[in-house]
């Protein structure tokens, strides 16, 4: 009962903040709403009995990544966007599609015979690490995925540096052309 009350409070905050991300015209307000949404999501993680995930959510996403995002927004032009219309012709197709998808997912979730077992979702530090890094051949093999994601991130980083370098080079050449 108590958990349900907490869940409703956190869920309303999370969904409301997510809507604010969509609807706010100011990039900084959007980023802050995203932070609020992430923090309340962390609260929900804690509520279902996996505080480790919740804390990691706060530390990594709300703390570090969103801090970087706000940093970028502030360095770039963080002004209110008045030119882009909120709805245009494409919205007529996208909004019904999103609503139908949401209805389908909700229907499927309601009809499915899911039972909530707190023992299966309880992800303390020990359970999480044991599941993630179980290297036995009979284990779930999540550590392989973990390594693959590491390689993926590394390649993404290399690609970003490559793109940035090329871009920087062109900017410099443009600037020199302007000067001549």
């Amino acid at each position: 009962m108590l958990a349900l009350v907490y869940f409703i409070i956190l869920a309303v905050i999370a969904v409301g903040a997510a809507l604010c991300v969509l609807l706010s015209r100011h990039p900084l307000y959007g980023a802050l709403s995203l932070v609020v949404s992430m923090v309340s999501l962390a609260g929900i993680y804690g509520l279902v009995g996996s505080p480790f995930l919740g804390v990691v959510q706060i530390m990594v996403y709300a703390g570090a990544i969103m801090m970087l995002v706000t940093f970028v927004i502030m360095v770039l032009n963080g002004a209110k966007d008045k030119r882009t219309p909120m709805f245009d012709g494409v919205s007529f197709f996208i909004i019904p599609a999103v609503l139908v998808l949401a209805a389908m997912v909700g229907f499927a979730l309601l009809r499915s015979t899911m039972t909530f077992d707190s023992a299966t979702v309880a992800g303390s530090v020990k359970v999480t690490s044991e599941t993630l890094f179980n290297m036995a051949s009979t284990g779930p093999g999540y550590f392989l995925l973990f390594e693959v994601i590491g390689v993926l991130l590394l390649s993404a980083m290399v690609a970003a540096i490559f793109l940035a370098k090329r871009h920087l080079g062109s900017v410099i050449s443009e600037n020199t052309e302007d000067k001549h």
């Binding site: 802050l32 804390v55 990691v56 530390m59 709300a62 703390g63 570090a64 801090m67 530090v125």
Partner: peptide, 21 residues
Amino acid sequence: SDVGVLLLFGLSSLSAYGAVL
């Protein structure tokens, strides 16, 4: 809680938003 010190770090990383904003 067994997350202990991580919670403290998460919260202290949030407190920088005050200065930034």
